[in-house]
């Protein structure tokens, strides 16, 4: 347990040093400049656009962190052989994998929390600047707490993508892992389309294959409630719970598989 904690903290420290958190500055600049520009251009709908932009940016910046750092977690250590030094210490290999994963989850959590605060600050400023009659036309209030639901599910999704990256990086090179992880991200978002595929294709075999893929591939669309939240549609707690539960189970599976592979591989 101690080893896991130290490894996780080290991942966090390294990613902070690696200027990963600089993306937060970009994020803030993007939001503030966008809100300024939109304020000049549109009337009324600018809060919706800021929300769209803020949530999309949270998700995309997070994706880059999850993929690039997630890959670096293990495959870069193996490629650069820095793993040799650590594994000769009293650390079990599965502890190493778990520590690495938790370290990146910590990095993501800090990153997303800061982004959420920045988003609320910009939205709060806009609400303050907007007259009440214009606010009445909004789908949802500017400082809608439901935004946190979307942010939370983005976090769960990013944790899942990190687990995918970790899984691939335990047995393939970092470039290949990055490609595979991005592929999985894209496939995961198209996954929902696979469900009714059998209604569209004539071949029953293709339909069954598509349905099987639907259940095996991570269904990332189930974490995407951005549009509902922005339009003030309710996101039921049951849905939040099921999506989170699904995410946790899938993450556990990937991390376990990563531990399994990593514990058995040779470091040539």
């Amino acid at each position: 347990m101690r080893a896991i904690r130290h490894i996780a903290v080290n991942v966090f420290r390294e990613s902070v040093r690696d200027k990963v958190l600089y993306n937060l500055v970009f994020f803030a600049v993007l939001l503030i400049s966008a809100s300024y520009l939109l304020g000049q251009l549109t009337a009324g709908q600018d809060v919706k656009i800021i929300k769209d932009l803020g949530l999309a940016a949270t998700s995309i910046f997070g994706l880059f962190i999850a993929v690039f750092i997630g890959i670096g977690l293990v495959s870069k250590e193996v490629e650069r052989r820095s793993v040799y030094g650590v594994l000769a210490k009293p650390v079990r290999r599965h502890e190493f994998v778990l520590g690495k994963y938790l370290g990146l989850v910590l990095t993501l959590a800090v990153n997303i929390a800061v982004m959420a605060v920045a988003l609320y600050l910009v939205l709060g400023y806009m609400a303050w600047m907007t007259p009440a009659n214009v606010q009445a036309a909004w789908d949802a209030p500017a400082l809608d707490p439901a935004l946190l639901k979307a942010v939370f599910l983005i976090f769960v999704e990013l944790c899942l993508i990190t687990a995918v990256a970790l899984f691939f990086s335990t047995f393939s090179s970092s470039i290949l892992s990055a490609v595979l992880t991005f592929g999985m991200f894209v496939a995961g978002h198209f996954d929902a389309d696979l469900k009714n595929f059998d209604q569209v294709v004539a071949s029953p075999a293709a339909g069954a294959l598509a349905r099987g893929m639907y259940y095996v591939l991570p269904n990332l669309a189930s974490f995407d409630v951005k549009a509902d939240v922005v339009h003030g549609q309710p996101v039921p707690w049951a849905l939040m719970g099921l999506a989170t539960g699904y995410g946790l189970v899938y993450i556990a599976m990937l991390v376990l598989a990563a531990m399994f592979i990593f514990s058995r591989r040779d470091f040539k």
Partner: peptide, 9 residues
Amino acid sequence: LMGASVVLQ
């Protein structure tokens, strides 16, 4: 875990 994820889905 795979089974559980299918059930949850």
